[in-house]
Lab assay of single mutants.
Amino acid sequence: ELREAFRLYDKEGNGYISTDVMREILAELDETLSSEDLDAMIDEIDADGSGTVDFEEFMGVMT
């Protein structure tokens, strides 16, 4: 189920989504998050600083 959700956002099928897209997902899930909260969450999610979120990083957030 998580893989299907990931595929919805990984429109190009390249195995990752951008941190911008991940930020939008988080904002949709919790509309009360401030910009600073979102920045901090993205920094934590994208631990390797690649600017992308792969499936493993995505799973870590969603579980």
Rank of each mutant, 00 (worst) to 15 (best):
E1G: 13
E1C: 15
E1K: 14
L2N: 03
L2H: 05
L2I: 08
L2D: 04
R3V: 10
R3Y: 15
R3N: 07
E4D: 12
E4G: 04
E4Q: 07
A5L: 15
A5M: 15
A5R: 15
F6A: 02
F6W: 14
F6H: 02
F6R: 03
R7N: 13
R7K: 13
R7P: 02
L8E: 08
L8C: 15
L8N: 11
L8F: 13
L8G: 10
L8K: 15
L8T: 12
Y9E: 03
Y9H: 09
Y9T: 02
Y9W: 13
D10H: 01
D10E: 03
D10L: 06
D10C: 13
D10T: 03
K11Q: 10
K11W: 11
K11R: 10
K11E: 07
E12I: 05
E12L: 09
E12S: 06
E12C: 08
E12V: 06
G13P: 01
G13K: 06
G13T: 03
G13Y: 03
G13H: 05
G13C: 08
G13Q: 07
N14T: 10
N14A: 08
N14I: 10
N14P: 01
N14Y: 09
G15A: 03
G15Q: 02
Y16Q: 05
Y16S: 05
Y16D: 01
Y16V: 05
Y16N: 03
Y16E: 02
I17M: 03
I17T: 00
I17N: 00
S18W: 04
S18H: 09
S18T: 12
S18E: 04
S18A: 08
S18L: 07
T19C: 07
T19A: 06
T19Y: 13
T19D: 02
T19Q: 03
D20S: 14
D20P: 05
D20F: 12
V21D: 11
V21G: 05
V21E: 08
V21T: 12
V21S: 12
V21I: 13
V21C: 12
M22S: 00
M22A: 04
M22W: 05
M22P: 00
M22T: 01
M22D: 00
R23W: 04
R23M: 02
R23V: 01
R23L: 03
R23T: 01
R23D: 00
E24L: 15
E24G: 13
E24M: 15
E24V: 14
I25R: 02
I25G: 00
I25Y: 05
I25E: 00
I25K: 02
L26E: 00
L26P: 00
A27P: 01
A27S: 11
A27C: 07
E28A: 15
E28M: 14
E28D: 10
E28W: 11
E28I: 11
L29V: 07
L29M: 13
D30E: 05
D30T: 07
D30Q: 07
D30L: 12
D30K: 07
D30G: 05
E31N: 14
E31Q: 14
E31F: 11
E31A: 14
T32A: 08
T32C: 09
T32H: 10
T32K: 10
T32P: 02
T32D: 07
T32N: 11
L33A: 05
L33N: 01
L33T: 03
L33V: 04
S34R: 08
S34M: 07
S35Y: 08
S35E: 13
S35A: 11
S35D: 12
S35C: 09
E36C: 11
E36M: 09
E36K: 11
D37G: 05
D37N: 07
D37Y: 06
D37M: 12
D37H: 07
D37W: 08
D37T: 10
L38P: 01
L38G: 01
L38E: 01
D39H: 06
D39G: 04
D39I: 06
D39W: 06
D39V: 05
D39C: 05
A40I: 11
A40G: 07
A40M: 10
A40S: 10
M41E: 01
M41G: 01
M41A: 06
I42S: 01
I42A: 01
I42M: 09
I42T: 02
D43A: 14
D43Q: 14
D43S: 14
D43I: 12
D43N: 14
D43V: 12
D43E: 12
D43P: 03
E44I: 13
E44C: 13
E44A: 13
E44D: 10
E44H: 13
I45G: 02
I45V: 09
I45P: 01
I45S: 02
I45Q: 01
I45N: 01
I45D: 00
I45W: 06
D46A: 04
D46L: 03
D46W: 03
D46F: 04
D46S: 04
D46K: 04
D46G: 04
A47H: 12
A47F: 09
A47G: 09
A47T: 11
A47V: 12
D48S: 08
D48Y: 06
D48W: 06
D48A: 08
G49P: 02
G49Q: 10
G49A: 08
G49T: 05
S50F: 05
S50Q: 05
S50K: 11
S50C: 07
S50L: 06
S50V: 06
G51E: 03
G51N: 06
G51K: 06
G51H: 07
G51L: 04
G51F: 04
T52W: 07
T52G: 05
T52D: 04
T52S: 07
T52R: 11
T52Y: 08
T52I: 09
V53K: 00
V53Q: 00
V53E: 00
V53I: 15
V53D: 00
D54P: 06
D54I: 06
D54E: 07
D54Q: 09
F55L: 09
F55I: 08
F55N: 01
F55Y: 11
F55A: 03
E56P: 06
E56Q: 11
E56Y: 13
E56N: 11
E56G: 09
E57R: 15
E57D: 10
F58P: 00
F58G: 01
F58L: 04
F58A: 02
F58E: 00
M59N: 04
M59H: 06
M59A: 13
M59T: 08
M59P: 00
M59D: 02
G60H: 15
G60V: 14
G60L: 15
G60S: 15
G60A: 15
G60K: 15
G60Q: 15
G60E: 11
V61D: 00
V61A: 14
V61L: 13
V61H: 10
V61P: 02
M62H: 04
M62S: 02
M62D: 01
M62P: 02
M62L: 08
M62Q: 03
M62K: 04
T63G: 11
T63Y: 09
T63E: 09
T63M: 14
T63C: 13
